[in-house]
């Protein structure tokens, strides 16, 4: 209940973070209220407040999430209406009230730059979305292509490369996917993972400590290939697996015999 009760706060936090778009939205509402004619105010402001009050209402979300668990995860999406409709709408009305054309133009440019600064400045500072970990670069491509060519049976892979194998690898079977950590997600896949796989997944975070156990479980499960994060002191052979590839970020072991 306390988690759900923070829905409204999470809504504002998730929409704001390093940006200030929710503040812009609040300012837009003030601008629209001040600049709008009396008879227009309710048409403009009341629906969005009602929508946000209903759709982001923690009580309603709590009730619905008892029947539809996925509802709890989608409150940030309702940020479209305040952000993409009302911020530009408020700015448009504000600029319309500016009388000298020169002032209007200068203010328009400044506001446009301010919108950029409130976000990631037109993509130049992309936060946690454009990092090397998220990029399908040559090194990851090499691993995925190796797996496509050599994997006959399931592959056990490190979390960091799982998504890339799933997205870019053609028919590379995985013993578990990146959804092993998704709880109550909306993928709709009813096939679950057993306890042994969850433990195996946890061990894969520290291959330098658990490589021997990883190899044992992987062999028991019929894995052909193991892909682990590169670590110092890795052996050339682990149980039934022999070292096959090192691309600097990952070590690849292949089962022999």
């Amino acid at each position: 209940m306390f988690t759900v009760a923070s829905t409204m706060i999470e809504f504002f936090k998730n929409s704001k973070l390093e940006g200030a778009y929710m503040l812009l939205f609040v300012l837009s509402i003030v601008i629209l209220y001040v600049t709008g004619r009396d008879r227009n105010r309710f048409h403009v402001i009341f629906p969005v407040i009602l929508i946000l009050g209903v759709v982001c209402n923690p009580i309603l979300v709590w009730i619905l999430s008892m029947f539809f668990p996925v509802v709890r995860f989608y409150e940030p999406m309702t940020a479209l209406i305040p952000i993409l409709i009302y911020i530009p709408f408020g700015i448009t009305e504000l600029l319309d009230r500016m009388k000298p054309l020169r002032t209007k133009r200068i203010l328009a440019v400044l506001l446009f730059l301010y919108v950029g600064i409130c976000g990631n400045f037109f993509g130049l500072f992309a936060g946690n979305t454009m990092t090397s970990a998220n990029r399908y670069d040559g090194q990851k491509q090499r691993i995925v292509e190796y797996l496509e060519q050599n994997a006959d049976g399931p592959v056990l892979a490190d979390e960091g490369i799982l998504s890339f194998i799933t997205a870019y690898g053609d028919d590379v079977p995985l013993i578990y996917g990146h959804d092993i950590m998704i709880i109550n997600g909306d993928l709709g896949i009813m096939d679950g993972y057993d306890e042994e796989l969850v433990v195996l997944h946890d061990m894969m975070w520290e291959p330098e400590k658990y490589m021997e156990q990883i190899a044992q479980v992987a062999n028991k499960r019929g894995c052909d290939i193991i892909v682990v994060k590169h670590f110092e002191g890795a052996k050339k052979a682990e149980g039934a697996y022999r070292f096959a590839l090192d691309d600097g970020d990952y070590l690849v072991y292949r089962r022999v015999g």
């Binding site: 940006g19 952000i83 993409l84 409130c118 976000g119 990631n120 993509g123 500072f125 936060g127």
Partner: peptide, 10 residues
């Protein structure tokens, strides 16, 4: 253009 500073923003 500027709004994807967070991966769950609209």
């Amino acid at each position: 253009l500027s709004g994807d500073y967070f991966n769950r923003s609209i």
